[in-house]
Design a protein around this nucleic acid. Sequence first.
DNA 1: TTGTAGGCGTTATCAC
DNA 2: GTGATAACGCCTACAA
Lengths: 350, 350
Amino acid sequence: MPKAPTSADVAREAGVSQSTVSYVMSGKRPISEKTRRRVAEAIDRLTYEPHAGARALAGHRTSTIAVVMPLRQASSAERLMIFVEEFTYAARRRDHDVLLVTADEGAAGLRRVAGRSLCDAIVVMEVGSHDARVETARGLAVPVVFVGIPDDGEGLDCLDFDFEGAGEVIVSELAGLGHRTVDVIGWGEDVHAQGFNYIPRFTAGAERAARRSDVRLRWHRASTGEDVRRAVDNARAASGVPALAVVTAIPETLHALSERRLRPGRDVDVVALTTGFVSEADGLTNVSTRPRDVSRRVMERVFGLIDGDLATRGGADLVPASLTRGGSTRSRPADRPAGPADNHREKEAS
Amino acid sequence: MPKAPTSADVAREAGVSQSTVSYVMSGKRPISEKTRRRVAEAIDRLTYEPHAGARALAGHRTSTIAVVMPLRQASSAERLMIFVEEFTYAARRRDHDVLLVTADEGAAGLRRVAGRSLCDAIVVMEVGSHDARVETARGLAVPVVFVGIPDDGEGLDCLDFDFEGAGEVIVSELAGLGHRTVDVIGWGEDVHAQGFNYIPRFTAGAERAARRSDVRLRWHRASTGEDVRRAVDNARAASGVPALAVVTAIPETLHALSERRLRPGRDVDVVALTTGFVSEADGLTNVSTRPRDVSRRVMERVFGLIDGDLATRGGADLVPASLTRGGSTRSRPADRPAGPADNHREKEAS
DNA sequence: TTGTAGGCGTTATCAC
DNA sequence: GTGATAACGCCTACAA
């Protein structure tokens, strides 16, 4: 195993000084075309790669973004993977890598990766409404971007999907179909227990739309398939055609409906909040939580902060909610716009 | 933003030399209890954290494990997340971190993270039967552990679930129920196209069991819900009670059966290969691919190699397949053992 | 446009 | 049991 070449080796091979090699790599100094070529050739003749630790030590930057994962129950695996993927791709486009940190390290994890100079910035996923990491973040030497909107996030860099808008859009849509009662298949007790900020936000939006449209909401917290079946039966017991807002357990709900021979779009109106690419969700009237858009905006923010773009700093950004009509709701009584829903409608580049 | 304290600051605060601080932290030298305490106090008085880059530079180790993710289509998001989680937890237990690398970097990605001294070891997920990364790995300065069994993996460190055994167990079980034909809902064309080694392995196992039990296998490559429905109809067209081996698209298959009012365990025998914790899979007769066990064994191997345990080096390990009977198959005609299936049955500590 | 040299914060080898 | 001190490989003023 021959020792790895250093920039000094490259310098010798190219007949230049070590610092010239460094400048060729960083581009922080004008270099004549001739020496640039000689150095470049030496570099790949030796298959030289710079030592990341030495770089971090001398250069005060690590080219690494730390990403704090959520606890397992918190989110759909699909949504999570999309985030992780997009973060990693975005980082690579800027010649950075992603270091994973698990949520169970808590605030100490943030202090660790920042204190040890393991990263240039931190992304915290699934922040809670009251989250110890929020206060910790304020004192760190590296910028922190939160995915989610904590209650005490003054001046922090937060970014998330607009769950409040989603609640509004979904309820408004069902109200527009003439429903006076909407049953919500909501997050289970276990998820509530974790205090994620998006639950109250979604709830607030839904309730606001309900008040405005004089609709009654019935919330069902569903963790298991059994919970879902109970909620569906409950919804059916009431009036004629039930209205379902499904924010979790979409496959289970569709299955329960199928068992009862209730076809969405005919015997029941279903609007879903989709978090990933559940194949059964195809064709559903739904609001997507747009994980790719959220992740991209998060990373734009991250690099904005790293680059010192003052314009990027501080405040909460929301990725707007928009509804896509599908076959799981009956056609609308009139052709009139969906009301408040339209305030949130947006077409965005994929 | 006060500058981060260094070990020199700690030394001054504790009234010892800088090297003593280093030895207190590493424990590589006997230290008197008195100075150990003084140093420890100084450390948390200053909230000192060692600089990872400096450590890597001087110590020739990074305390980081690089994990190469699979391409997106390759695996279920749930299975993936379990791997990533387990890798990260296992790494933390040994005071290491996980750096993510995406599959699209290919072999160059391995060279990059190894060449730049970004990690002490690399884990490559979802290796293909013929994978350029296999050859690259042989020349690297850091150990590489592959999840999967490539064809040309002589002397490499490979580890995976025993897909071949799984194929055997599943077909044997259905044969034992008296079936002479088994329909396999198999991986779609898109997955086949990627050349993952586990597909031929599963196929070989299934075919061997089929020959032995004089069973005919009918393979259906299913990517979409439509493919699944077609496969199910096909299976039904044949004999009385169909036998289904479901290795992918489990929810879609169950949905298709439900649509057709075929109840697993009564109108159809279903044995599934489960890759995550699909809620609908509860109670199914199934063989789990045991992602947690696989990940743990992978990390044991990784740290074995890092520690230089020669015993750990080289060769392919398989996590054995075992079948769990559930309600999706009818009770067995006799009480006799499942035959070949039992060769693979194993109880392992969770 | 290029070279020289000091320093980044550890680890580990010598001495004592 | 403890203290100096030379690497480790790169970045970046400062000079030329």
